[in-house]
Write a protein that binds this DNA or RNA. Structure first.
Lengths: 243, 243
DNA sequence: CAGTGGTCTAGACCACGAA
DNA sequence: TCGTGGTCTAGACCACTGT
């Protein structure tokens, strides 16, 4: 009974979605202008834009200011593999992933202080990584490492989003906190998504055997493009870690 | 430079957010009516509603049709613990979690067929669970088990969202796929969130040592209320599982 | 410059909740 | 019934992208 409530924009979204999934609108193709579509569906522009926002949230279209609305490539979902990358063939075989890294040194903010358990203002090496897959942003990562633990060159770390250099030597424990939320403005622009599209945010804390935090990573992925996968094997009687 | 773009509703959201975080608006309190707020901020109702949608997405307010907008209780984020519930004190110590379970038997749909690797139409035991924390919905779970594996009584399974009965006897491998997306209409109503609030959706597949899928769980959590936590320990040289 | 999406308005009408 | 939020309109103006 709750399906036929008044919501014209959902009907329109359904119609356009149908045209996309059936192939009448092809990937990469530009949709008619919003005013044109509004006239075609006999609705106002704001209603039509709400319909498009639904499709954008589903990852079916991409809105580009000043150019138009485009059908997104069907993008099989790329994955982020949690823990110590239990290499998933899907992710491992992805060759078209280009990563740009920018590294600087910053003093620890209040938030990073609590994450890394370091004194306020401690120097941290920051790696800001944006990975793109065929031009489409795939993930944004900001990785922080106490500077005395950070290597001189960037190459040794390979702080990739999705897989990482196997066995960072010192980390013995990884804790990942996953969260679904709206993107921050800078995330929205970096990932080329609207503020309506949810992001999958992962805060990864790596600790060494002494309990020292050796890395904090703030990862953000467009929710319509990536899944995160976590696997657990049952070996012996694993005792629950009590803090 | 990108901060001062024209977006009145963000300013308003920021102002109301400030009133909430500073305590001028207390938890549980009802906000002035939308028309009142619109007049107060000298904006139209749709603009004001956009501002409130931002706050709703942040989990700061709750909109109730016909009653008003209410400041949400600061709800420290409840957590879902992945894998074999590495019991987190936070979650484990949560006493105020009430779960309602409804169990039926359904034939496997196309989607469940691929998840559980069973023939189409196989009888499945379905457990539909809605957990509430102090009246606020906390999670929605739909768990499917091949009926020949399902116990007669519901009590043995305890398919809770957040923790589960330790050691379901047969499962040896758990794979959880995490995804951020907009809620389906039924999820939105069950979780008492708008369609704008993102959900953290987890698909959990439990496999026994022979590779048979013994359980598929579709979990949905309101993104503004729960985080999911996954931990990994580094013991020995763990060989990557290749499919 | 023209064409596009992004934001906003002032008002209308409908649906829900509590009297 | 009344007051509330939910949806929609017809148009205006601004910002971005191309020529």
């Amino acid at each position: 009974m709750t399906g036929s409530v008044p919501s014209r924009h959902h009907d329109i979204a359904g119609d356009v979605r149908h045209q996309i999934t059936t192939g009448r609108l092809k990937p990469g193709e530009r949709l008619p202008s919003e005013v044109g579509l509004a006239a075609r569906y006999r609705v106002s522009t704001v209603t039509l834009r709400r319909a498009l926002a639904v499709l954008q949230g589903e990852g079916l279209i991409e809105k580009i200011h000043g150019k138009g609305n485009f059908v997104r490539r069907p993008g099989r979902k790329i994955m982020h593999v949690g823990g110590w990358g239990t290499l998933d063939p899907w992710t491992a075989a992805e060759p078209t992933l280009r990563v740009t890294v920018r590294s600087t040194t910053v003093p620890a903010s209040a938030y990073l202080t609590t994450l890394l358990k370091v004194p306020t203002g401690s120097p941290l090496a920051e790696y800001s990584c944006l990975s793109l897959e065929q031009g489409a942003p795939h993930g944004l990562a900001r990785i922080y490492i106490p500077r005395d633990l950070a290597p001189a060159g960037v190459s040794t770390t390979t702080p990739s989003t999705g897989r990482r250099s196997r066995d960072s030597p010192s980390s013995a424990h990884i804790r990942e906190t996953v969260c679904a939320r709206s993107p921050t403005p800078d995330e929205a622009s970096a990932l080329r998504i609207g503020t309506t599209t949810a992001v999958l945010a992962i805060t990864r804390i790596a600790t060494d055997s002494t309990g020292r935090v050796v890395e904090a990573a703030l990862l953000a992925f467009p929710g319509d493009r990536v899944d995160a996968v976590f696997t657990a094997h049952h070996m012996r009687n694993e005792r629950p870690t009590q803090r």
